[in-house]
Design a protein around this nucleic acid. Structure first.
Lengths: 211, 211, 211, 211
DNA sequence: TATGAATGAGAATTCATTCAT
DNA sequence: AATGAATGAATTCTCATTCAT
């Protein structure tokens, strides 16, 4: 809805960066010349819309993260149970490995110390309520699942989120690096993780209701 | 054992880089001038021992990862059970947050796409049998734990390793970023993760012995 | 008289430049964007009236010099004697230090080597008979003063003009820079200079009449 | 004495700038590429010795002003009387018109508002006691001349300095611009100014001793 | 006529790497 | 072996000028 407002030049720059990123470019060595050439605009034009290179790159990553997560979130809503939702996320990661890669690598960028990292962290910390990123998706899934269980403390929520998050990272690691070295089918891996999350949450529910 | 062979200049360079890294420097903006100044040697000298900057940085990270993991591995051997071992790793991460940070960030570097990343990945993939890194530590722990269980397939091992690895990453993320925003005690978090790993492995054992 | 012909856009540009100049802007770093923004017109519009930036700035300075000198000249005519006239010029410089500054700095620009300097020199050298600048004012004052004296050669005139001019520059320097560092009253300085010019001219008259 | 300490690269840069300046280059459009090409060194080398372009240019002008004034001062000491000293300065300006031009234009630069101007003003205001510039030369000449006269107040000194200074500017103006348009011999002009300064100072002495 | 978005040539500055000492 | 002065390729960013609307 808000992306309609984006100037076509800004969109071109964002798309250029995202594509270069997906093609494996190193963000720290991306040049403005490369970006604008790929975007099909003049070098100076980029500076009509951004105050510096970092702003362009961080902006592009933030925009892409929001776009992908928005889509993901809408599709997840159509899944009925926890297993289905998690499975959907993992399948999505698998099918659109390029996207996954981009989101995963954006997350990776955020953990770094570069100027782009700082800017991206700032953008994320100042994001609007209605802008959805990975942690929000996980939070929503958990909250829906736990509706009937006894009230969760903040700590419980935090633990569950990290639990789910770690499994997702686990699958991402598998997709990106371990897949080649392993003879484990993707579907098997997916199934393992889904069941695992499911059972952990069930255990959690029981613990909570018992108490 | 092999570190005895390292020329004092190389050691100086490695230590300089590791310190700069621990102080929060962005690896992509580290300059040779900074490194050699910190190492107390001439700029030209660095090029007597390394063919380029990437070699220096990747070398330093690899060296540091080995050093830290070597120590960690030896101390873990003194722990009696799985819970103790995992707890020790997590406590170690917590106590020496700076070191953790360095190892975690080295892992982070490896996930990237820069020239340093490529070189570091290469080093890791070509490492000697007796050089121990985080995955080796985890593998050793699992193998010891599973000794009595039915023979594990490669797939089983891979899954377990990733499972443990993802929990560790989870704790690292907690230490580095989430801790401040959360009111969850470190010890609680540690305990949750230890028990969680324990229970997952127990379930796994049962499944395997049952079959 | 000719300023009536000036298009309102040209006037806006001239005034914008003069104001920026008076506010202390460095002419060599003045941008077209700044000028047109201040003038309240579009960037492209400026190029409908001027062929380049230098033309705008030189034009503005020339316009302002003429305007200020025109006013000055008319007011000087009401002064009765040499002392009064010179004193009036100096007081005017003192009171309207901003204006003075602008005229003085225009003179300063003319002494330089920039593109603006060249254009301004050209404008001054091609100026109309009825356009009055500082040297014309001085010439008029001297000619009036010397009316009764023996005919002056061109050389005599030139010398006298430079003599007066150098005193005026001297006062300008005093106003702009030396004033702060000195404990000399403005009025004292003014009086000294007026008397000095007076006495020099008197000596000159005597020499000439004697010969 | 202190110039012996200057690195050859710094000297090369200073000389390159001074020559470009003397050849009429506009200081505000001088590029580092031009300077270093003329100095016969690499572009990067300049930045080993200066932190930015302004520092180079202001440094060069300051260095040249000191050099020229130092020489001038020593030669003036060999002149016996006031007339001789002033005449020497003017002859020097005339003969070495290029040098004069450079010093005069340095003075011109100081009156401006550019980054170089600011830096040069700062250098001048922080100069050592033993570093001699034009105002110091004039002051020395006046103090020597007035030795026998009644004690001068600060105001008296200031007035005399400006009086002499204005004559020198007058001669500079004549040399640089008016000469061509006038049929006045340089020697005549010089003589006029020398005698004029002499007589002004004599009048001053008399006034002071009378009081 | 008025505009301002788009442009790209050009400038300052940085820094990995070399090489004479 | 050790050095650091010298270098120039590469990068970011600016801004005068154009031109389609």
């Amino acid at each position: 809805m808000d992306s309609i407002e984006l100037s076509p030049k800004v969109t071109a720059i964002y798309q250029a960066i995202v594509r270069l990123f997906m093609e494996g470019a190193d963000l720290n060595n991306l040049t403005v010349a490369e970006i604008t050439a790929r975007a099909g605009i003049g070098k100076g034009t980029a500076y009509e819309y951004f105050s510096n290179k970092e702003e362009m790159i961080a902006g592009a990553l933030f925009y892409e993260m929001k776009r992908v997560c928005q889509n993901l979130c809408e599709q997840i809503k159509q899944q009925k149970d926890l297993h289905g939702k998690i499975n959907f996320i993992l399948m999505n990661m698998e099918e659109h490995i390029a996207n996954t890669n981009c989101v995963f690598r954006s997350f990776h960028v955020m953990m770094g110390n570069s100027a782009v990292s700082s800017r991206l962290k700032e953008m994320v910390s100042k994001k609007q309520e209605d802008e959805i990123l990975i942690p929000d998706i996980i939070r929503i899934i958990i909250e829906e699942e736990m509706e009937n269980a006894k009230e969760l403390t903040e700590e419980d929520k935090a633990y569950l989120m990290m639990m789910v998050f770690s499994k997702i990272i686990c699958f991402a690691l598998y997709q990106i690096s371990a897949k080649k070295e392993l003879n484990l089918e993707s579907s098997t891996m997916r199934e393992l993780i889904c069941r695992n999350i499911n059972s952990e949450i069930e255990h959690f529910k029981i613990d909570k209701t018992e108490v």
